[in-house]
Amino acid sequence: MNAKIIVLALTPFAANAQGFAGLGGAADGFGLPTPAPTFDFPTDHGPHDNYRIEWWYLTANLQADDGTDYGLQWTLFRSALAPETGSGWTAPQLWMGHAAVTTSTDHYVSERIGRGGIGQAGVTAAPFSAWIDDWQFSGDWQTMAMTASGTDFAYDMDLNAQGPLIFHGDDGYSVKSAGGQASYYYSQPYFDIAGTLTLPDGDVAVTGSAWLDREWSSQPLAADQTGWDWFSLSFDDGAKMMGFLLRQSDGTAYSSATWIAADGTTTAYPDGAFRAEALETSATSGATVPTTWRVQLPDRGVDATVTAVNSDAWMQTSVPYWEGPVRIEGSHTGRGYLEMTGYE
């Protein structure tokens, strides 16, 4: 998802490195996504060092035995200074990890940054492992394990895939603007997840479902795009929906969505089919952001209200953004995740 591009592009170290901000910049020898891709797994689960930016992005809606809702995030970003792998200190690959746990009242966040080429952080495709420092996400894409820790929280999770990979846009070629900016984008939204959250009040056993996004690109945004609102929604009837708005500086937005039927068949929707309208905003520890949305996909009869579980799920990281669990009510009910960037 585009969502994460700006996160990397605007990190303080990135902000200093004009060359890799990558927003509308030229690709400088980096690879560019082309339509109708063919993926090669497990290789494509691994890094694509000749693309400027890439991520492994997992969000999960969790519940404890007593019914308490939790949200969880584990993300590893890769950002390349040059389209090559390299080794040692001169390797141009930089890595950034974000981990978070959200309750209805608290939001725990941790961030790690490191260099590729020395082993501190990286991703290998086979066997699959993604790591930065002591954080790790590994397994065979059927059974996976995941861990992260911050100064005030930690978690250990086991995941089990219950369905196929989902490819967005044109078989995994996801267009981001009328100008043709695009990325490769697939997901595994069918993980069952269970494990232990370590929080200041003690350990909590939780179960739930997780959604993993994989995306890479080199020139992902148009110059006039300022931020986005991204939804991953799992409905109680078994269907799922991914939708995003890319807000443009003229006040309009570019939208895109993928409908995932309960049986795993997908339908991609072009600009305009998916609509999202902010109903309520909340002041968070960072910016004021919309925390209640009306989302519509008329073609599927979706007209639902999406509400943040914890309106203050602000990610106070190198580049701050909002990322947290949501509840869905209306034509469809269910749970999901919301990400919002570019708010000040």
Binding site: Q18, A82, I113, G114, Q120
Partner: peptide, 23 residues
Amino acid sequence: LTAPSSLGPVNLADGADIGAFLS
């Protein structure tokens, strides 16, 4: 990238070409 934020040469944080620094 791993140094505590208050550490480091003066003004590294703003305006420096971190890309060049790291590469």
